[in-house]
Design a protein around this nucleic acid. Structure first.
Lengths: 138, 138
DNA sequence: TGACCTTATGTGTAAAATGTACATATATGG
DNA sequence: CCATATATGTACATTTTACACATAAGGTCA
């Protein structure tokens, strides 16, 4: 009956990567492999690298980042990404979206504190002061 | 070139609804329509109702919520949902996941403050003290 | 030099989740 | 009787992500 996945089974929320990628590229010009490591250090447990590379190419196709091949140095060729002016604009917009997420999460933990311990205030959607089915699950 | 959508175009992050639904049902037993209104008041701009109803049925199939038809009262019949023991366990797990999101967002705004104004510390992925392409986008 | 590992980027495809359009039914107000 | 708000649902297409697999350069060590 219970779902087989351990709750948030490593799957990221939708579109979560995009603002982080833009922000990292606002700060540093890096190639994909280093972006991935940077994201790892910022709390993304295991970034799926095909997802990351595809997202980078999409951002480039949209004009939000540009890339240059860096063939010098050791190891295989690296595609180094830089943010564009349009990308910085997009980052500004995304920051407001992420700020909205932050507010929603704060609201989550407010209600969470109420639900676990404190008495609920009469501020429900319809002020359900008479809960109908609170007892049938004991 | 620029993406047609206004950034976070009303699309929610993946799986964002689930913990909120469980939390609302931890606090109140409600039917879908009222759950939707409650979510609206908590910052979800426009909850797509097919998505919500589908998620509720999935949660029920997984055993995390149960429902009862409420035919008395005015208006069409309402399917009133209540959280189960398994659902409360799942809510506990989700709260840790959401807490992880909260930390990631806090890290986002930390880097955001650095990128817009303050000098970057030498704590990059590989300490990129020599940015390669920071000038070619001016 | 040959096997193997790390770095680095990619393709192909299936699964998951969501969004849009459409459908159904009850009650209320004009 | 018709429009609207409430209330739930189906069908389908789109979007996004996850998993498996492929490719290639360079270094190490026997």
């Amino acid at each position: 009956m219970v779902s087989p996945d351990p709750i948030g089974s490593r799957k990221l929320p939708r579109n979560f990567l995009t603002p982080w990628i833009l922000l990292v590229l606002k700060q540093w010009s890096l190639h994909g492999y280093l972006i991935m490591q940077q994201l790892n250090s910022m709390g993304f447990a295991e970034v799926d690298h095909p997802t990351l590379y595809r997202e980078l190419r999409r951002l480039e196709k949209e004009g939000h980042v540009v890339s240059e091949w860096q063939t010098d140095g050791s190891g295989p060729a690296k595609r180094v990404y830089s943010i564009t002016e349009a990308g910085e604009q997009m980052l500004l917009g995304w920051s407001e979206v992420v700020s909205g997420y932050q507010r929603m999460i704060a609201g989550f933990f407010d209600l969470y504190a109420q639900a676990f311990g404190m008495a609920p205030p009469a501020t429900g959607p319809d002020a359900p002061t008479e809960p109908e089915f609170n007892d049938n699950v004991t």
